[in-house]
């Protein structure tokens, strides 16, 4: 049936597009959760803040939408930097003496931070959904059998460009190499003269900025509300765990896979339960492949 084939291609392409936004978000979390092993439940709020920054910069300040993207990127970076600076420092300096375990401290503090940011935005900007203007004003582009809005196409290209840039940055730049060194072994890296605290700060800043950019790119497609970040955040965890904890190529592949799976699942299995698929995958991977959770091997000093 040709109609069926067109539908499948359409689902596949749309899945890949969603996957590229997921990837942008998941890379930031890969760095924090996969490499630093710090859980951050406020990651979705970085995304939410990016969506708001983009929308408000365009609608309230009247900036060009192309300026809205760097604004969102910068705002997300600042929030990420502040989070690390004010809340994460005790994690490196023997918090155990306080009696509350390190991981549990991060769980509680970032969970509360998420609650704080959601309600702060709710109070300051309002609980109503806002929608950002598209990057280009082309309602329909035909890409072979697939119909897309102009914004979706451009946003996907931007997302892929940023993903590649980030991957190259982590792989080849000095800071990127420092990040990987700290991820492998914090003590070892600092013995080799790397400022581990500064590196963590860079990771959080980058992670916040990428999540915010992902939110900004999606702002014209989704309805932005203060709690819009909770599902993308959970999905990012699914991706990070699926992608093998800390591997950036792994998380990109996992993002695209999840995007496509959800796109097909919503049509062929059940639309109402579409958000439950990823969660079920997360639980299964955590339980059945715990050995797959520990990305790159640490090195002893």
């Amino acid at each position: 049936m040709p109609g069926q084939r067109v539908l499948n291609i359409d689902l596949f392409v749309n899945g890949l597009i969603m996957g590229s936004f997921y990837a942008l978000m998941a890379i930031g979390l890969t760095l924090i959760f996969g490499l630093l092993r710090i859980v951050n439940f406020a990651h979705g709020e970085f995304y939410m803040i990016g969506a708001y920054a983009y929308t408000l910069a365009a609608l309230k300040l009247g900036l060009s939408v192309w300026l809205g993207l760097p604004v969102a990127f910068a705002v997300g970076g600042i929030v990420g930097w502040l989070t690390e600076r004010t809340l994460m420092r005790p994690l490196y300096a023997g918090y155990a003496s306080w009696g509350l375990m390190k991981d549990e401290y991060a769980v509680v503090v970032t969970f509360a931070l998420s609650l704080l940011l959601i309600n702060l935005v709710d109070k300051v900007i309002g609980p109503y959904a806002v929608r950002g203007p598209g990057l280009v004003d082309i309602p329909r582009i035909a890409l072979g059998p697939v119909m897309l809005t102009g914004h979706k196409l451009i946003a996907t290209i931007v997302a892929f460009a940023m993903i590649i840039a980030t991957a190259l940055f982590i792989r080849y730049s000095l800071w990127g190499r420092q990040i990987r060194a700290v991820a492998q072994n914090r003590l070892g890296a600092s013995l080799a003269g790397i400022d581990a605290t500064k590196t963590s700060s860079i990771i959080f800043t980058l992670s916040g900025a990428l999540a915010a950019l992902s939110g900004a790119l999606l702002a014209p497609i989704i309805n932005t509300t203060p709690d819009v970040g909770s599902f993308p955040a959970i999905k990012s965890y699914v991706i990070v765990v699926l992608g093998g904890m800390g591997s950036i190529p792994g998380s990109i592949v996992a993002s695209l896979l999840l995007g496509v799976l959800e796109s097909f699942g919503a049509v062929y299995i059940s639309y109402d339960y579409r958000d439950a698929f990823g969660l079920a995958i997360l639980i299964l991977v955590l339980l059945l492949r715990p050995q797959g959770l520990f990305g790159e091997k640490g090195r002893e000093v």
């Binding site: 859980v39 769980v107 639980i283 955590l286």
Partner: peptide, 17 residues
């Protein structure tokens, strides 16, 4: 056998499901 962040994530996913 899950601890810390893994336990938190699994229970959170369970809650949402």
């Amino acid at each position: 056998r899950l601890r810390g962040p893994y336990l938190a994530l699994t229970t959170l996913s369970f809650a949402e499901i």
